[in-house]
């Protein structure tokens, strides 16, 4: 579904060039849930923006659904760390924004879909509210509905739950897994929380900083549904979390020549 071959990203900084990403090879299968984890500054968000087509790679190739990515695709949605809702638009109208920007094709059908999605995340009855009337968690739910409205093949999520309190975060990660199981969307999810990475993912990609490289790819075989809070698989989660923690804490990252497919 998503394929990165020898991708690198170099930014022009104030003190010369900064290599944000180097030699990234990554292959995400259709329907897979991949989490990207790493310290801040390891280029996780940059990697996500490359896949989204928001940023062209300095070298290498990014492909989605076997086509090179040159600009944002309509079947790929992006969810930000902050809800990024337009403050003057009602909840419903915010969810409908992608459809509106695309043009008026099948507006009525999408409207029904929007109501359905809002109900799915427990926001029935809030369709007419303005964003500032909602809590942070509710706002991020609206943002989730917006990223689902066009039935995306791929969802790219940039630390979407990191600004929320622990309880809301647990709830939302549960809802995301439920939605994921229903829709079989491919998801690439950036986080800096080890536990979140383990609980959500089929595979965890560990990035090392400066320059950002793939340090390790870890398969997670814990049965679903999993939960951040009460968990039937606490030992497995703890075990893998420990492993990831070790990888992230390494001072000198050994270069990785080969990445497991």
């Amino acid at each position: 579904m998503i394929r990165l071959d020898g991708v690198g990203q170099v930014f022009d900084g104030r003190e010369g060039q900064v290599t944000a990403l180097e030699e990234i090879d990554l292959h995400v299968r259709p329907g897979e849930f991949v989490t990207l984890i790493g310290r801040s500054g390891c280029g996780k968000s940059t990697l996500l923006r490359l896949i989204a087509g928001l940023l062209p790679p300095t070298y290498g190739e990014v492909r989605v659904a076997d086509e090179p990515v040159t600009r944002p695709r309509r079947d790929v949605s992006f969810m930000f760390q902050r809800p990024a809702l337009l403050p003057w638009r009602s909840v419903l109208s915010n969810v409908m924004l992608p459809v509106e920007i695309e043009g008026d094709k099948g507006r009525a059908a999408y409207r029904d879909r929007a109501h359905e999605l809002l109900e799915l995340v427990g926001l029935k009855g809030f369709e007419g509210r303005l964003p500032h009337e909602l809590s942070g968690g509710m706002q991020q739910r609206v943002s989730l509905c917006r990223s689902l409205i066009r039935d995306p093949q791929v969802m790219l999520m940039d630390e979407p739950f990191s600004a929320l309190d622990a309880l809301t975060r647990t709830e939302l990660s549960g809802e995301l897994q439920r939605i994921k199981m229903e829709l079989s969307t491919t998801i690439v999810f950036v986080t800096h929380s080890i536990e979140e990475a383990v609980v959500l993912a089929d595979r965890v990609v560990v990035l090392t900083p400066r320059p950002g490289r793939v340090r390790e790819v870890v398969d997670i075989d814990i049965p679903r549904p999993r939960s951040l809070g009460r968990n039937a698989h606490l030992t497995e989660v703890a075990e893998i979390s420990g492993l990831l923690h070790g990888l992230l804490a390494e001072k000198e990252a050994r270069p990785v020549d080969e990445v497991r497919p």
């Binding site: 928001l54 944002p72 309509r74 930000f80 990024a84 992608p98």
Partner: peptide
């Protein structure tokens, strides 16, 4: 205009 809102509209191909 906040950066994330500009990025949102870019990501929607506006």
């Amino acid at each position: 205009t906040p950066v994330e809102l500009v990025e949102l509209l870019r990501s929607l191909n506006a």
